[in-house]
């Protein structure tokens, strides 16, 4: 009898890839050798086990989930589709909210620039109902602005003080920056429109930073954020935002200095 078959011989035999010059020898040996036949059965069982265990179960929503990821890359919306997307209730709600913010800021800034001070209006008593309503609305809007500055300040403080970002922290910072960015843009445009240059200037600096944080590349995000943190520090951006925040609290006079 020929020498026992190696595991490699058996594997080639299993896949039908034995060299034609050896096929006869291998077949004859397997016919005569119970030990090699048993080894071949063991190999078949091993590969059958691999067949049965290698795949993971996929959810029924697999195709839908994959399409959701793919669609932005492969679907080019034409004008009518774009409009029908924009005119969905969700986008209309966002648009309305954005318009509301613009109006609110316009109102607040105009009141501060041209209208009576809240304290004075409040002092004039309840017989001035419209002025009181204005004051109330103004206070609500100022609180909103103040909230924006406070959130921005918190983000900047973390940016300056964090030296090693985990992927989860990067994602969180990017999401936060995106969130702040939309509102910041509106506040900055409004401040510029009503001629409040110091406020517009600080908001513009803040916006540039938010854009950079939100757009930092996934691969270099940790290093990017650390650089941005140093930039924030060197530009004293936290200080300026803090001044704006306090000014808003006192009635939105804006920082008196730039730099």
């Amino acid at each position: 009898m020929t020498p026992h078959l190696t595991e490699d011989d058996l594997l080639l035999h299993y896949y039908g890839e034995t060299d034609p010059s050896r096929e006869g020898i291998v077949a004859a040996h397997l016919g005569a050798c119970a030990e090699c036949r048993a080894s071949l059965v063991g190999l078949e069982r091993l590969l059958a086990m691999v067949n049965s265990g290698v795949d993971v179960d996929l959810p029924q929503t697999f195709e839908r989930d994959i399409w959701r990821r793919l669609a932005p890359h492969v679907v080019r919306p034409h004008a009518s589709v774009l409009w029908s997307t924009v005119l969905t209730p969700r986008w209309l709600a966002w648009g309305a909210a954005a318009a509301g913010v613009v109006l609110a800021v316009l109102l607040v800034v105009q009141l501060r620039l041209h209208g009576p001070s809240p304290r004075k209006a409040a002092d004039e008593g309840p017989h001035r109902a419209p002025a009181t309503a204005d004051v109330f609305r103004e206070r609500v809007l100022l609180a909103d602005l103040e909230n924006h500055f406070e959130r921005s300040e918190m983000m900047l403080v973390e940016l300056v003080n964090t030296s090693h970002y985990t992927p989860a922290e990067i994602q969180r910072e990017q999401a936060r920056a995106e969130d702040l960015l939309a509102a910041n843009r509106l506040y900055r445009q409004t401040a510029a429109n009503v001629g409040n240059a110091p406020v517009a200037h600080v908001l513009e600096e803040l916006e540039r930073l938010l854009v950079d944080v939100a757009a930092s590349s996934p691969t270099a995000a940790a290093a990017d954020l650390e650089v941005l943190g140093r930039r924030t520090e060197s530009q004293s951006l936290i200080f300026k935002v803090r001044v704006l925040s306090r000014s808003t609290d006192r009635g939105f006079e804006g920082p008196s200095t730039q730099g």
Partner: peptide
Amino acid sequence: FRAVRKMRVVLAPFV
């Protein structure tokens, strides 16, 4: 060949 050998070692108790 190496892949199959390695898997055989790991899966031997089951096979």
